[in-house]
Amino acid sequence: MFFVGGESNVRDYYDVVVIGGGPGGMSAALYAGRAGLSCIVIEGNSTGGQMNEADVIENYPGIEEIKGPVLGEKMRRHAEKFGAQFHTATVVDVDFSGQMKRTILDDGKIISSEVVIISTGASHRKLNVPGEMEFSGKGVSYCATCDGHFFKGKKVALVGGGDTAMTEALYLANLVREVLVIHRRDKLRATKVLQERAFSKPNIKFVWDSIVREIRGNEKVEKVVVENKRTGEKTELEVSGLFIAIGIVPNSEIFRGKLHLDSQGYVVTDENMETNVRGVYAVGDVRSKGLRQIVTAAAEGAVAASHAAETYFG
C-alpha cells in the first residue's frame, strides 16, 4: 500500500478549521466541502486517527471488511474531492474568545476561521504502574500494529478486555508465539464475535481476575507481575513485551478552561454537536457521549458541519 496524500500551501483564513483527521474530522470536512465552505483539516500524525491502528474493521455499514488505514485513506480522498485541504501539524493552542476563532499550530502557523470543529479523538490510557514509564518503548507498547513485528515468535502479554484489546490480541496472535491476555474480571467486555474469535485461537491464553502490579526487567521488559484479585496471590509472567489496551483518554487538554468539559475531560455539546462556545463544535471520541465508534464519529461530523453551514453561512 502506498498512501499518496499531499499538501498545498496553508492560507490564513478558512470558513471551517477541523482539528484532528480521524473519521469524525474527515466526515465533517466532507460535509463542509459539499456545503461550499472552505475547510482545512489539521492532523498531527497521519490522517485516519485511531482507525490506523485497526487491523480490520467490519462494522462500518456497507463495508463488510476493510483495513483501518485504507478506510482512512478513502475518507481523506472523499473529503478532498469536495475541496477540503489537509495539513500535517499539531494544534498547540486555540483562541475562542472572539467571533473569529484562532487555531495555533506547532509549525508556527495561525489560522483564523468562523467555525472550529474539534475531532481530536482519544489516546491510549496508561496503566500507571511501576516500570511502565521506564520500559515504554522497551517492551511496553500501546500500539500493536506499530510494534507487533518486533515480537515475532516471542511471548507477550496484553492488558485489557474490550473490543480494542481483543482486536489487538487477534492481530498479535498472528505474529507472536503466544499472547497472554490479562483481564481484571472473569469475563470480557468485548463484542461477542471478537470474544469467540479470541477464544478459538490456541495461542491466546487468558489470565482472569488479575491486575498488573509491576513491570520488571533489565534493559527490556522481562517480567510482568500480576495480582489475582480474588486470592491476592502475586505471579510473575515471563514475557518479552506488554501491550496496553485498557481504554482511552480524551485529547482535550488544550481546550481546558476554554470549553465545558465533563468530569472525565470529554467535551460537552448539544444535540447539534455545538459546545458552549458558539461556532465551536466537538465530534467523535473526544465528545461526552455513549458509543465511541467510527460510524458514530462520522455521523457526528456530518451533523456538526451541516449545522455550522446553516447557522453561520446560511
Partner: peptide
C-alpha cells in the same frame, strides 16, 4: 519506523 505505524511519518518529516 514500521510501515504500519501512523505516528512515524510526522517524525520522519
Amino acid at each position: 519506523v514500521t510501515p504500519t505505524c501512523p505516528y512515524c511519518p510526522r517524525a520522519v518529516l
